[in-house]
Structures are given as structure tokens and as C-alpha cells.
Design a protein around this nucleic acid. Structure first.
Length: 468
DNA sequence: ATGTCC
């Protein structure tokens, strides 16, 4: 081949895919076509592309033919131009790291995205940021829900007198240890669980779920690890108009935070992989791969997601029930909500799929729980239904430090002193969960005063988390 | 988040 050289762009212009075939073409160019004029060489490439089948046995071209036939060019879905992606509202702008905003901006550019919002506890995650809310059109993003599907809060307000709790603190601590199970992969202790959710028809409707049924039974009522907890604490009801007609004042309560354990994690992993296979997005957003709700896979994910949500809910109820029975308490009121989930909702008269990944549903009048930290209060909230926040609020204070960073910066002396100051007994946990690793919950609540009203607070007193 | 890549 004389004078001008053929390059990759020439081949792509002919219609060649930009994949492994390029390497083979380069070898042929160098070893067999080096003396041919450019036009003639291009003609040859064109012929191979048009009649690939005829070259599958050709000594020179068989590798090229094989790749052309086996690997059809993958169509990468294009992101919307920034100018057409629409804006999203950020609450608590000053508390949010740039990485989380960049992730949200990318999510806004998906072709399926309708609208979005970022909560004041937001920080970087896989795919959608934690604290990200994304409304899409008839499609679900497994990583827009998160790895721990149905991760949620549950608060039981009890009839136990405060003085009884204080006088018997060691018994309450013992029962908390006896009736909660922490640790990754940890199975339930002793008695085998039975619960309607373990017989959910979804286990038979979705083949992938069948193999997870036994694991789900083994782990029912367990809490897992990470930032999950079960705690005794003091509820303070301050809204006189509360729905339970409870007199304002202090109550003993149980607050728990956990999700769908191995069941949800396996579902998330499986359908994320499937989505990435079926929905090729540019590298920087590949974790936002989505499934159409009209597809078999999308419908399966939705069913599996709802099962994982119900399972997570059952886990909380099981934990609360055992603690309530062990202490002879009665439940006066209960507040609970998912904060890693997707819902079918109407916004502005349009049917949408609303993903909340680390965000609390806050539709008008909807109750929820936003935890603080092991020493900072959590909040019982009532949604204000702000449209620009897509009826959402934060799911907590949000991390200030990464786990790794927190392990380096925090120390046990400081943590022990904080626990003492706040009259908190801690069982388990590591320095990565120290209160100093989290944002200031009061600032976060201030930043979302348009999103939720405060009904009451919860001050942790005996906290159990997974061992470090 | 989960016994951490089918």
C-alpha cells in the first residue's frame, strides 16, 4: 500500500465496528496489503464486510470474518445533551460533595430520566448517589434502588414507663443482645422462622428467586452489618396533632435500621448484571443500566424488588416482636419506611418510576423516620409533599467521611467519651460508625425544612451494631 | 450492602 495509509477511522467509515476486529485488520494491512493502493485495499475491506460469510474459510480473512459474524457492533445508548437533560433540585447544596452532584447530573442525562432531586445527606455511591431521587419513564434502574433493596427504618413506640426502662437498663441490654443477630451472612439463631413472606408466590414465579428461598428463611429477623442497628431509645412526641393521639412527651422506643440481607443483595447483583448486558450505556454511567418495565426482565426485577422490600419489612417486625415479647411491652404506635426502593407514582399528572436510593418518601402527610447517629437524635417526620423534591427527604445525616477515612481519623477514647456524654451504651460497632463520621443531623434537618415537618425525636440509649 | 465475581 503506497503513500496514504488506511487507519481505523477509514474502516469505521466503511461500517466496521470499533472492537477487536481492528487488531486483526491491522495485521492484514501490515502483512498482506502493504503494497496495495489505498483505494484497492479499501475495496477489499468493503467486500469482506458486505459478504463476510464468504470469508469464513479464507486463510487471510477468516479471523476478521469470525469477529464480524460473532460480535455485532454493540449499540451504546447515547446520553442526552446537558442542555436537554433538565435540571434537578439540590437541597442542602453546601453539605454535598461534588462527586454526588456529578453522579446526579449524569443520571439526569439518561434517555429514560424525567426528573430528579438530591437530598441534603447525599454522597457518592455506585451509579446513583446515596441521597439521590430519580424519576424515570417506564424503566427501572437496579442500581438506582441500591444493593440493599428495601433497606428501611422501623420505630415502635412502647407503653413502658421511662423509670422502668432506666431501672432495668441491664435487662433491656441483655434482651437486645439475646434477640438480635448481626454480621454479614449471619443466620438466624435457634428457632426456625416462619412468616408469610417466605411463602410469597414470587418465589415460584421468578426462577432466580427459588434458590434464595432457603437463605431468606435462614436470615429472617437478622440485621446484617455496615450501618445497620437495633436500639432502645427515648421517643419524644412533640406534635400535639399526632395520628396516634398520643399525649406529647417521652416514651421508650425500639428503632431498627436494616434491609433485605442476602436475598436483596443477590437480586440486586443478578439484575444489575442483566441490565448491564441488555442496556449498554457509556462507561461512566454503566452502573445506571436500566430495564424496561415492558420487558420480561424488568417485570421480574420489579417482582423481586417488591419481595425483597416485604422481606426487609418482615425482618424488622420479627426483631421488634421478639424484643417486645421479651420485655412485656405493648406497641402504642409504629412508624416505618423504605429508603432504598422504587415506587410507581404520579407526579405532575404523569405516571413515573421514582427511585429513592437513600431517601425517605415524604409525600404530603406521609410519616417516616430519619435517623441521626448513635449519639445524635433521629427524627419522626411528616412529609410536606414538595414537588421539586419529588416528595422525598434525606434518609439520615449522611456520611461525612468514608469508612476508610473514619477508621483513620476517629479513635476509641473520643468515641467512648461521646457515648458517656450522651448516656449511650454501645454494643458492637467500629470507628467507621462513630458519630463524627456523619454530618450534623440538625444542619441536615434545617436544609430540608421545606420537605418535612418534625413530629418527634428519638434519642438512642442502648445501641447494637455489627462488631468491627 | 453482601460470606465480598457468575
Amino acid at each position: 500500500m503506497k503513500d496514504e495509509l488506511i487507519n481505523g477511522n477509514d474502516l469505521i467509515a466503511l461500517g466496521y465496528p470499533a472492537n477487536a476486529v481492528m487488531k486483526e485488520c491491522k495485521i492484514i494491512l501490515e502483512t498482506h496489503l502493504s503494497t496495495l493502493p489505498k483505494e484497492q485495499a479499501l475495496e477489499k475491506f468493503k467486500l469482506v464486510l458486505e459478504d463476510t460469510q464468504a470469508f469464513t474459510e479464507d486463510d487471510i480473512w477468516k479471523n476478521v470474518a469470525k469477529i464480524l459474524l460473532s460480535k455485532p457492533a454493540k449499540v451504546i445508548i447515547e446520553l442526552k445533551d446537558l442542555s436537554k437533560s433538565g435540571t434537578y433540585n439540590i437541597f442542602g447544596q453546601e453539605y454535598i460533595e461534588p462527586g454526588a452532584k456529578q453522579q446526579m447530573q449524569l443520571a439526569m442525562r439518561l434517555p429514560i430520566t424525567h426528573s430528579g432531586a438530591l437530598m441534603p445527606d447525599a454522597h457518592q455511591g455506585y451509579g446513583l448517589p446515596i441521597g439521590g431521587v430519580l424519576a424515570t419513564d417506564n424503566a427501572v434502574i437496579p442500581y438506582g434502588v441500591g444493593v440493599d433493596i428495601g433497606c428501611r427504618m422501623c420505630l415502635s413506640i412502647l407503653d413502658i414507663p421511662l423509670y422502668h426502662f432506666d431501672e432495668n437498663a441491664s435487662k433491656f441490654k441483655r434482651e437486645l443482645i439475646a434477640h438480635t443477630v448481626f454480621g454479614a451472612g449471619a443466620p438466624r439463631l435457634k428457632n426456625r422462622a416462619d412468616h408469610a413472606v417466605l411463602h410469597d408466590p414470587a418465589f415460584d414465579q421468578v426462577p432466580f428467586l427459588k434458590q434464595l428461598q432457603e437463605k431468606a428463611a435462614m436470615q429472617l429477623g437478622t440485621s446484617g452489618s455496615g450501618n445497620h442497628f437495633v436500639e432502645w431509645g427515648i421517643v419524644k412526641i412533640q406534635d400535639e396533632q399526632n395520628e396516634w393521639n398520643l399525649p406529647t412527651g417521652k416514651y421508650v422506643g425500639i428503632l431498627s435500621h436494616s434491609g433485605s440481607r442476602g436475598l436483596g443483595a443477590q437480586v440486586a447483583g443478578h439484575y444489575t448484571k442483566l441490565a448491564e448486558k441488555l442496556c449498554s450505556l457509556p462507561q461512566e454511567v454503566k452502573r445506571l443500566a436500566y430495564l424496561s418495565l415492558d420487558s420480561q426482565e424488568g417485570q421480574e426485577y420489579w417482582l423481586a424488588m417488591e419481595l425483597a422490600g416485604n422481606y426487609a419489612s418482615a425482618c424488622h417486625h420479627d426483631i421488634h416482636q421478639r424484643l417486645v415479647e421479651a420485655t412485656g411491652a405493648e406497641v402504642l404506635a409504629r412508624v416505618e419506611n423504605h429508603h432504598n426502593f422504587a415506587w410507581k407514582e404520579q407526579h405532575g399528572g404523569k405516571d413515573l418510576i421514582v427511585h429513592r436510593k437513600g431517601a425517605t418518601p415524604a409525600g404530603k402527610g406521609v410519616l417516616g423516620i430519619i435517623p441521626g447517629s448513635m449519639t445524635a437524635p433521629g427524627f419522626i417526620v411528616k412529609g410536606r409533599g414538595l414537588a421539586t423534591a419529588l416528595d422525598s427527604a434525606s434518609h439520615g445525616a449522611g456520611r461525612l467521611m468514608s469508612r476508610k477515612q473514619a477508621l483513620i481519623k476517629n479513635n476509641w477514647n473520643e468515641l467512648r467519651s461521646m457515648l458517656k456524654d450522651h448516656n449511650v451504651t454501645l454494643i458492637g460497632a467500629g470507628l467507621d460508625e462513630a458519630p463524627t463520621a456523619y454530618k450534623n443531623i440538625n444542619q441536615v434537618m434545617q436544609a430540608q425544612s421545606e420537605l418535612v415537618d418534625i413530629v418527634g425525636t428519638f434519642k438512642p440509649r442502648i445501641v447494637r451494631m455489627a462488631d468491627a
